[in-house]
Amino acid sequence: MIARPKRRLNPKKKHDYMWGYLMILPTMVGTIIFNFWPLVQSLYLSFTKWGAFGSYSWGGLVNYRRLFSDPNLAMALRNTIVYALMVVPASLALSILVAVLLNQDIRGVGVYRTLYFLPVVTMTVAVGMVWRWLYNADFGLINHVLKLVSIEGPRWLTDPSWSLSSIAVVAIWGGIGHNMVILLSGLQSIPSTYYEAAEIDGANAFIKFFRITLPLLTPTIFFLAVTGLIGALQVFELIFMMIGPESPVIRQTQTLVFMFYREAFIFMDKGYAAAIIFILFLLVLVVTIMQFAAQKKWVHYE
């Protein structure tokens, strides 16, 4: 064994460290109390059997055994993954398009940016309610407009073959604003010298976009892909607001978090619900690790 030389910090350094830790203390305390501790508790609760009003006892693997024979799990897992695959790529592609368009010198750019950003500052619950009216198959605006051009619109929210996609459309629309703002900051940090050099070489707009803009935007896109996927896997409010537990299509539309809600807050079985949420936790973990592994292939850091 080689004895490691003891690192001695000079008083100035020590002082800096202390301040550094002090600065992150509020966040760390918050993270530990509101994220880490509940995680540990949820894991523990997933091994318990629940009675009424918060009474519980150790149940071993009983929840997990029940979960793997629950036909709803496969359906919810499938819905969650399909939903995420519908939302994240489409949302990113549209956001990049919008961000690039709104990065030009056009009149009223502020107005357009505000319009795209509005859904972000609107409560999801309100968004869900308004879209629910728009989607109403008999009296909604969407089907009314379709009828004007002689198209019989589907039952967007009550036909099981449409319901999940209808929700995804709202999520894509609602996510553009947030992505756009972050992409805009990414776009504006690309040095203009690259474009000037490309222009001298006679590159057109498409070549500039695919050879300069897109590669240099990949770190931002990667960040949005990771956070967007995590968010999509946890979708709940839109499904709760637009479909709801009483709907005949909820079985074919429910995701893991909705299934968790049903067990925890309708059937009041927090132990079983904790087991469901742990499956989701593992899913998010695996998907995120995969994304980080794959980034070497496509993310270019300057």
Binding site: N136, D138, F139, R155, L157, T158, D159, E246, S247, P248
Partner: peptide, 16 residues
């Protein structure tokens, strides 16, 4: 249909 009644509940159809 029940799908219709989920979109627009009976009370609302009655009121319309």
């Amino acid at each position: 249909t029940v799908a219709q009644q989920t979109d627009t509940p009976g009370e609302a159809l009655f009121e319309a």
